[in-house]
């Protein structure tokens, strides 16, 4: 499949498109936690690294099939997501943000001292199983499942928690279960993205999954539009392409990036496509025609 695509697309662009796919998967996971349910998580890179390391170690040491490896990585991240979901019962907003930052930092330090993970040297020689077709197939499946989830009763309950937790509770929503569910599914997707990333890069290193990586994923969600699937996809596309396109102005690109975030928040506090859902789009553009 990839050989076929490679005849028409330059390998460099193919690579960027694979990264876009991986970022979409991870950003959709965070969107579920932060965008939809409103639980500010600033440690998504922690889930990503859990998925990446678990999948890579399984591939390297046990010679497991690719799908098993990335699923194991995602499951590992999901189980940690479940554990992190529990404090959300007691903490809100900024304390939760601190706990997630702390969690991601602890994971990073753990991998820096983790012998089977190569410590600070990182893991190298991971087989490159991830290819264009696999990534985008997973992206499509994730988008469809995600959309189904958001339009279901569960999805509406999650939105309700974001808007007003107490009101949601008094409407009979089991907020505890819902919040833990959002965390578990969200971190599963983070871990899935991490596993794909590891199997594309040949090499992973604990420093790749630092605080700035978490912020990068959070920016995708917020820039595109909190709680919106098309928005999150758009955010992931823009923020993956931007650094590549801005390579000419290399040194100034972070300056531009920071400034853009501020300006965007002032004019579009809910992101480019804040709360736009696929069916809203259909309704809006359909009427005009």
């Amino acid at each position: 499949m990839d050989a076929f695509i490679a005849q028409y697309i330059d390998a460099y662009y193919l690579r960027i498109m694979i990264f876009i796919g991986i970022n979409i998967i991870m950003a959709l996971g965070l969107n579920l936690i932060t965008g939809v349910t409103g639980q500010l998580s600033m440690g998504h890179a922690g889930f990503m690294s859990l998925g990446a390391y678990t999948a890579a170690i399984i591939s390297l040491h046990y010679d497991a099939p690719f799908f098993l490896a990335i699923l194991a990585g995602a499951a590992m991240a999901a189980s940690f997501g479940f554990i992190i979901g529990i404090p959300t019962l007691r903490l809100d907003g900024d304390d939760l943000a601190m706990v997630t930052i702390g969690f991601a930092e602890i994971i990073r330090v753990f991998f820096l001292n983790f012998e089977p993970g190569g410590k600070a040297v990182g893991l190298s020689g991971i087989p490159q199983y991830t290819d264009f077709a696999t990534v985008w197939l997973i992206v499509i499946v994730v988008i469809i499942l995600n959309a189904k989830l958001l339009y279901s009763r569960v999805g509406r309950s999650l939105f309700a928690i974001r808007e007003n937790e107490i009101a949601a509770q008094s409407c009979g929503i089991n907020t505890t279960r819902m919040k833990i569910l959002a965390f578990t599914v969200g971190s599963f997707l983070g871990g899935l993205g991490g596993g794909l990333y590891a199997h594309y890069m040949y090499y992973i290193n604990p420093q790749d999954f630092g605080f700035m990586k978490s912020i990068e994923i959070l920016n995708m969600v917020v820039l595109g539009g909190m709680g919106s699937i098309p928005g999150t996809v758009l955010g992931a596309v823009i923020l993956t392409l931007a650094p590549e396109m801005l390579r000419i102005v290399a040194e100034y690109r972070l300056l531009f990036y920071g400034g853009m975030l501020v300006i965007l928040m002032i004019f579009r506090p809910n992101g480019l496509l804040g709360d736009v859902r696929i069916y809203d789009l259909k309704k809006r553009w359909g009427k005009k025609r």
């Binding site: 932060t34 409103g38 500010l40 907003g93 912020i215 959070l218 920016n219 917020v222 909190m226 972070l254 300056l255 990036y257 920071g258 400034g259 853009m260 975030l261 501020v262 928040m265 002032i266 506090p269 809910n270």
Partner: peptide, 17 residues
Amino acid sequence: KSSRLSALISAIGVSIF
């Protein structure tokens, strides 16, 4: 005008800048 999360992102933008 906007949620606290937007202000937080704005702060992150300033920090990077």
